[in-house]
């Protein structure tokens, strides 16, 4: 008996050990390149130091400055919330509608073609997209201003990114019409996975068109909506590169966000400790929003009572 089972047990043990060994390699890389820097940032947030200089322990002084004395903190957070909320609104709606329209096409060839066409923009790097909007659309002699001039609305021509009254909205509109291929594909996959039986039952009950979209399709793609929501929130809180290219947080601090302020403090002002404190706060904001999301935003499985 034992002689029959020993080799099998040995194989399992070897297999398990191999898995652990391979995992250990990955884990050690993760520790070195992610966890150590994160813990280093946590610890350095209690110090004041410049690159190349001695650091000085200041306790919670960086946090106190960030939360109570820095006049940019509150506006930055509000801008971040506005841009994140705006991004959530458009990414949860527009790509879903597009995915539904593609999914509703009768011919598979048509669906395939449109999926490809909507996916192509994904290969354009985000930095290139920002530069296109900066140089070709919002520029003084860019597409938007030239269209306004041509249409006779000269008085509406402006520096869209430098005018305090338009800068934040102009930043939010980058990426218009927001039919990013990534989201479209995810929603399309969700819509494709709705069982035929559900669709047929809905038809028998007379649930068609818009009613079906809201009562059947949306609840059935809740998992996808939840995923996009979490990813959009994380990207919104962490984002800074787009604003760095477009406005550098200006005019004034009209488009400043915490991520960008962290970057400026770290690399322009050399206030590394303060930048670490901003990073730690951003970490807790993301953590809090993700926990809220997990708790209150139900996925399809949870709605079906399987979660």
């Amino acid at each position: 008996m034992s002689s029959r089972h020993t080799p099998r047990f040995g194989y399992r043990a070897r297999f398990t050990l191999t898995c652990y060994a391979l995992l250990a390699v990955q884990m050690s890389l993760l520790v070195v390149f992610v966890y150590v820097p994160v813990f280093w940032a946590f610890s350095k947030s209690f110090f004041e130091f410049e690159v190349g200089s001695e650091s000085r322990f200041v306790g919670f002084a960086n946090y106190a400055e960030l939360l109570f004395r820095d006049p940019t903190t509150l506006p930055s957070l509000l801008h971040m919330l506005f841009l994140t909320a705006f991004a959530v609104c458009v990414r949860l709606t527009v790509p879903l509608v597009v995915a539904k329209l593609i999914h509703s096409l009768s011919r598979e060839k048509g669906r395939y073609l449109f999926r490809i066409l909507f996916l192509v923009p994904v290969v354009v790097p985000g930095v290139a997209v920002q530069l296109i909007w900066y140089g070709m659309i919002y520029n003084d002699r860019g597409m938007l201003n030239e269209l306004l001039r041509t249409a006779g609305f000269e008085q509406c021509v402006r520096g869209w990114l430098s005018d305090p009254s338009t800068a934040l909205v102009a930043v939010a509109f980058v990426g218009f019409p927001w039919v990013g291929g990534f989201e479209v594909l995810i929603y399309y996959a969700g819509l494709s996975s709705i069982p035929e039986s559900v669709t047929e039952a809905a038809l028998l009950e007379g649930c068609t068109g818009v009613q079906k979209f809201f009562r059947i399709d949306i609840p059935m793609v809740m998992s996808q909506l939840k995923l996009i929501l979490i990813l959009t929130i994380i990207a919104g809180v962490q984002s800074f590169e787009g604003l760095f290219i477009l406005t550098k947080g200006g005019p004034g601090f009209k488009t400043m966000v915490p991520g960008l302020w962290m970057y400026f403090n770290a690399f322009s002002f050399q206030r590394m400790g303060y930048a670490c404190a901003i990073g730690v706060c951003l970490f807790f904001i993301i953590l809090g929003l993700t926990v809220l999301n997990m708790r209150y935003f139900k996925s399809t499985a949870e709605l079906e009572g399987r979660g």
Partner: peptide, 10 residues
């Protein structure tokens, strides 16, 4: 930053 905002009547 603030000068730009001031000059643009922000």
């Amino acid at each position: 930053r603030m000068l730009e905002l001031y000059l643009n009547d922000g």
